[in-house]
C-alpha cells in the first residue's frame, strides 16, 4: 500500500434497498493533494464520499484510513480528523461565530475565530451576523470555516458549489486550493463539472454507474482518456 495514502479502498461495494450503488471500488487517496471524484449525476460520487467519514458503511470490501481499518477508529475522532462539507450548507441556528465554533465547543478545543475568518476569507464583522441573513455563497463559506476550525487532516467536499453563482463558485474553488496549500490538507472534492475538476484537481477518479472507470492524474485523464466511457462522459453524452 502507498505510504502516503490517507485512504485506501479495496473492492468496496455498497447497496441500498437491494440496489447496488457502488461496485468493487479500488481507490487510493494521496496525502496533501486534491483528489477529485468525478462522474455524471447519480453515478454514486456522494455515496463514495460518505463512506470516508462513516456517514454510511460499505456492504463489502475494506476501507483503511492512515493504514488502519476505518471501522476500528472511534467515529468521533474520525469525524474530527476527516471534516466534511455537504452539498447544501446546513447552518445551525445562531450567528456565524456560533457556527464556526460549533465543533470546537463540542470537543473543548481552543480556537481563535479571527484566525479562521482570515483563513477562509470571511469578514470579521460578519461573526455576529445571524446565519439566516447570509447568501448561499456566504453560508457555504461558513460551513467550510466550521469544518476547518477543527483543524482536520482531510476535508471532504460534496459538490459545494452546486448552488452557487459563477463568482461564488470561483471564490470557493480558490478557498479550497488556498486551504490545501496553507494547511497541507488532503482534500476530496466531488463534482460533475469537468472544468472544475481540471481547475482544482491533482488526481481524479471517474465513477460511472457505481463503478470506477479510471483513476489517475486528472489532467492526464481529461486530456487523454483511456476508456470509452470516459470519452463519452467528456463529450457530454453521460450527464
Amino acid at each position: 500500500m502507498d505510504q502516503d495514502a490517507v485512504f485506501h479502498l479495496s473492492q468496496v461495494s455498497m447497496a441500498r434497498n437491494g440496489k447496488e450503488i457502488l461496485k468493487n471500488i479500488d481507490w487510493t487517496v494521496p496525502a496533501g493533494r486534491v483528489s477529485i471524484v468525478l462522474g455524471p449525476t447519480g453515478s454514486g460520487k456522494t455515496s463514495l464520499l460518505r463512506l470516508l467519514n462513516r456517514l454510511d458503511d460499505p456492504s463489502s470490501g475494506e476501507i483503511r484510513y492512515m493504514g488502519a481499518p476505518l471501522s476500528s477508529i472511534d467515529v468521533r475522532d474520525l469525524r474530527v480528523e476527516v471534516g466534511m462539507v455537504l452539498q447544501q450548507p446546513f447552518l445551525f441556528e445562531g450567528t456565524v461565530l456560533d457556527n464556526i465554533l460549533y465543533g470546537c465547543r463540542l470537543h473543548g478545543m481552543d480556537v481563535d475565530p479571527a484566525e479562521i475568518t482570515a483563513l477562509v476569507g470571511i469578514d470579521e464583522a460578519m461573526l455576529r451576523q445571524d446565519v439566516s441573513t447570509l447568501s448561499v455563497g456566504q453560508s457555504q463559506k461558513v460551513s467550510i470555516a466550521r469544518a476547518v476550525a477543527l483543524r482536520p487532516r482531510v476535508l471532504l467536499l460534496d459538490e459545494p458549489t452546486s448552488g452557487l453563482d459563477p463568482t461564488s463558485t470561483v471564490q470557493v474553488e480558490e478557498l479550497v486550493s488556498g486551504l490545501v496549500r496553507a494547511l497541507g490538507l488532503t482534500c476530496v472534492f466531488v463534482t460533475h463539472r469537468i472544468e472544475q475538476a481540471r481547475r482544482l484537481g491533482h488526481r481524479g477518479i471517474l465513477i460511472i454507474d457505481g463503478s470506477r472507470v479510471e483513476e489517475r492524474e486528472i489532467e492526464d485523464m481529461l486530456s487523454s482518456p483511456a476508456d470509452e466511457r470516459t470519452r463519452r462522459f467528456l463529450n457530454g453524452e453521460l450527464r
Binding site: 467519514n53 456517514l55 468521533r76 475522532d77 469525524r79 474530527v80 471534516g83 466534511m84 462539507v85 455537504l86 447544501q88 446546513f90 447552518l91 445551525f92 460549533y102 465543533g103 463540542l106 470537543h107 460551513s143 466550521r146 469544518a147 477543527l150
Partner: peptide, 16 residues
Amino acid sequence: RGEVEAALCLGASPQK
C-alpha cells in the same frame, strides 16, 4: 436530515 448529518460530520454525538 441534512442538518443532523452536518452536526454528525463535526463529530457531534447522535444525542447532540
